[in-house]
Amino acid sequence: MSVHVFDTMGTVVSLRTPAGPLDDAALESIEDVFRSFDRRFSLYDERSPLSRIARGDLALTAADAVVRETYALALDWRTRTDGAFTPHRPDGVVDLSGVVKALAMHDAGTELDRHSPDWLLTVGGDVLGRGSTDGSAWRVGVVDPDARDRLLGTATLSGTRRALATSGVAERGQHIWRRGPETFVQVTVAADDVVTADVIATAITAGDLEDLDRLTASADVDVVAVLADGTLRATPGARAWVGR
């Protein structure tokens, strides 16, 4: 097992390849994917197009195609989640961080496919994988929100279920804005693609039990949710993760 770790987008990326390290050019191309997303979408870098949009220096319509497409995609997710997910902060500022990380992972995954049949990409708590390790499926622990050093259970990435994303309020990123009183502490979502997993996890965390039911009914996802009262809820596909 080879592990490559690097810093980007304000968090840490861990890349595993069971068959040994990728060559430097490949690693460089993967890091490039994240760097180019960071350049466009960082709100910490005041020169990024998104920072300029936030300040009002740049019209969204005048931004480059990638920014506009990303915004359009985020809007599409807002519709699909009935507003539970939104690309705007309550103060109106366009905030695409909710989808940018997942999009970057998605693109990096496409790039990785060109270099290796088996890989696992972990970025700040979201996971995307392909293939297997030593003949068995990738296993991903789900953090217990009450004790960060322990696990709630273990999910496996197999078949088309390649992505796992967790959203929570314990280390609340600024991309989660709640719509009402807190119902969930942490929501973990498995989906076929990482953008869906990430957005649904964010949307459920921001919502309530009704949102949970609606989103699990309308999207092809497996969900484990930890409620504020400490109880668990799991969809049928996710019960094996925690019900042991």
Binding site: G124, G125, V140, G153, A155, G168, Q186, G243, R244
Partner: peptide
């Protein structure tokens, strides 16, 4: 669903961890 006993990281053979964004 009932919560099973929390696992320690050591006891689980895992390659990655999914948790809230850090």
């Amino acid at each position: 669903i009932l919560r099973s006993e929390a696992l320690t990281a050591q006891s689980a053979s895992i390659q990655s961890v999914s948790g809230a964004t850090y």
